[in-house]
Amino acid sequence: MITMTDVSKEYRMGAETVHALAGVSLQIDGGDFVSIIGPSGSGKSTLMNIIGCLDTPTKGSYRLADEPVEGLSADRLAEVRNSAIGFVFQTFNLLPRLNALENVELPLVYAGVPSGERRATARELLDRVGLSDRVRHRPNELSGGQRQRVAIARALATKPRVLLADEPTGALDTRTGSEIMDLLEELNRDGTTLVLVTHEPELAERARQVIRLLDGRVA
């Protein structure tokens, strides 16, 4: 599903070059559950951004579902993100003016799905994450755990093959966090590839494969 070979990401900061990633190779199979762990600044988010096609490597090759991602135009990358990737962020990143249903519909809007079909799919997904009684609520009318559930439903809207979760429990209390983890694991058992970024070893251990990053390298 995901193959990275010797991927580097460099940032130029004046005269200095920061190596956010320095030659990372990894392989993630379809349906896998992989966690990426490492101290702050080790390159976890950079790696996630490249996997999620938000960013492209400076060096090395990245193939998503056997397709090379290098050299894709900004619009092609947007289409790949839309159809193949679902993002779950630490701070949820729901649009505050839209209600839960509309937030979940958003990726389908960009996929060009007609409004009726969109609504039906979004309702189904909110039902799936246990929020069928909160569809008309706006993010600020929901608890942190509920917001993250909406975000997960949104990530699933286009039935992507890969779910990328960057510290998804970082802003939640332990109990809610563990409920969210349960939900993500359940989705993984149903076939979605799950990539989890965390700095908590207990969470990382729940994955089938653990990738440890240190200073931009796989340790």
Binding site: G52, D75, A78, R81, L95, R154
Partner: peptide, 16 residues
């Protein structure tokens, strides 16, 4: 800006 970033992550193209 953040809203734009979220929309882009969800698949909004430049023309969108």
């Amino acid at each position: 800006t953040r809203e734009i970033g979220v929309r882009m992550a969800l698949g909004a193209r430049r023309r969108d």
